[in-house]
Structures are given as structure tokens and as C-alpha cells.
Simulated scan of single mutants.
Amino acid sequence: MDDQAEGGTQAISLSVVNGVATIIIDRPARKNALTAAMWAALIDAVEQVDALPEARVLIVRSGGSDFSAGADIAEFETVRRDADTARSYEALNAKAFAALRNVRVPTLAAIRGACLGGGFGLAISCDLRLAAPDARFSIPAAKLGLAYPAEGIRHIVWAAGPQLARYLVYSGQQISAARALDAGLLLEVVEDDALDARVETLAATIAANAPLTNRATKQAINAILSDDPLMMREAERLGDMTFISEDYAEGRRAFREKRKPVFTGR
């Protein structure tokens, strides 16, 4: 497959099985670097998940040995050549990050190898991040002479804390999975051959829980991080809806009957 085709929309795939949606970034020959077409396809895939009532959790992972080396620098002469084109390109990035942050279901990132630049932005836009020991993280913007988008910096600070965020952006240096775990950037570090199974087990656990509860909780956490009163009011509304839901009645019945509840999202 030639590089143009490899960088097209077919490098992003979506599947949904038993309530677990999976988006795969699959361009391993370029370390899963994302072209503009791939960013757009990723946004479309997340929006599809948001519209699927059967989807209860979303996994983002990659083909090959790297999560993503970030945006495809080979395109920058055209799509990011000056301030005007950079703004348009970064708006596409920001829309992809926002889609992951705001999709109604919890999101998990399964990370191996390089998780750099825009790939780092995708990972930290997910709710939970698990990585193999070989995962490595960096924001190389200062080595390219460009500014990482300000909105993206906000989310690096949320995920990594201000001190590590400064180090990552100022230095452009990579940090290991072990250091990322110590900093709270990762939930777990799992041996490479067990990573997919661990992520899938966690996703299945989340998918078995009440989806309305998870949606209200995700909204509340995002509202707290954003310090946004409107988002908090929406979180409160979603929380109130759980108390009149069929799932709440099912949860109480299952507790009385000493069995696992079967939630329908209604």
C-alpha cells in the first residue's frame, strides 16, 4: 500500500462488540502518525460511537508497536505552513481531542511504544490510560519550532500536573511509562503481552455497569476540571435522571435478589 493510501481514512477503524467500541489507529509503517484525513476520520468514528445506544465504553488503541507518533510532519508544508493553515489544522486536532473528552461513554487508551505530540493529546483526552512498559511520552513542539495549541496545554496540565507539563513542553524530552505512572498520567503499566486483555477486561467491567451512571459521572468530572457551571448543571440533570431510570429499579431488585444487575441504559 502506498503512503498516500496508508495515510487515508481506512487507517482508522471502528468496531463494537458486546457494548465495547474499539477505535484502532492503523498506520504502523509511519508509527501511526496521523494525517489530516485520519484526524477527520477519527472524529467521525467517535461521533458514531456517541450515536450508538449499544456502545457503553470506548477503547482507543493502535496497530503495530506504537500508539502514535502524533501528527504526520510530512504534511506540514501544506496543512501547517503558516499561522492561518496552522489554526485550521489545530482546530481539527482540537475537535478530535474534544470528541474523545466529551463522548458520553468512558474511554480507555491502550498505549505501546511512541505516544508523542498529537498522539499524547489523544491519549490524555481519554478517561483512563493503561500502557505497556515500553511506552514513552513526549511533546516535541519545542524541537520543531511550533507552539503546542493552548487548549492542548490545558489538558496536559490536567493529566500530568503543572510541573511535569512544563518539563514535557519546555524540554521536549521523553518520559518512560514508569515515570508517567508515578506522575499519575497512567492508571496502570501492564506487561505488553497482557495489555490488551487487561484493557478489554476493564472495558467489559465498565460496560456491565449502569451506563446512565457512567454518563452522569463523566459529565461531572469534566465539569469539575473545566470549572464550568453550565456543565455542572448538566451533570446534576443527568444525575437526577438516574433516580427515575429503569436501571435504578433494576439495581435495587438485583441487590434484593442477590444477583448481578442487567442494565439497559433506560
Rank of each mutant, 00 (worst) to 15 (best):
G8F: 00
Q10P: 04
A11T: 10
I23F: 11
P28L: 10
R30A: 13
M38K: 00
A41F: 03
L52F: 03
L58Y: 06
S65F: 10
S65G: 14
S65L: 14
D66A: 06
A69C: 09
I73Q: 09
A74D: 04
F76A: 12
A86I: 07
L92S: 05
L92K: 12
N93I: 05
A94C: 08
K95C: 03
A96L: 03
L100C: 04
V103G: 08
V105T: 13
T107H: 04
I111H: 00
C115V: 08
F120Y: 08
F120M: 15
S125C: 13
D127L: 14
A135E: 11
P140N: 06
A141Y: 13
L144N: 05
L144S: 05
G145D: 02
A150E: 14
G152Y: 13
I153P: 02
R154I: 12
I156T: 14
P162K: 11
A165S: 09
Y167V: 01
S176P: 00
A178W: 00
A183T: 02
G184Q: 09
L186T: 06
A194W: 00
V199C: 05
A204D: 12
I206E: 08
R215K: 15
K218V: 13
K218A: 14
I221Y: 11
I221K: 05
I221G: 06
A223R: 09
L225V: 05
D227W: 01
D228K: 02
P229C: 08
A235Y: 09
D240T: 03
T242W: 03
R253L: 12
A254P: 15
F255T: 10
R259W: 13
R259Y: 06
P261G: 13
P261E: 15
P261V: 11
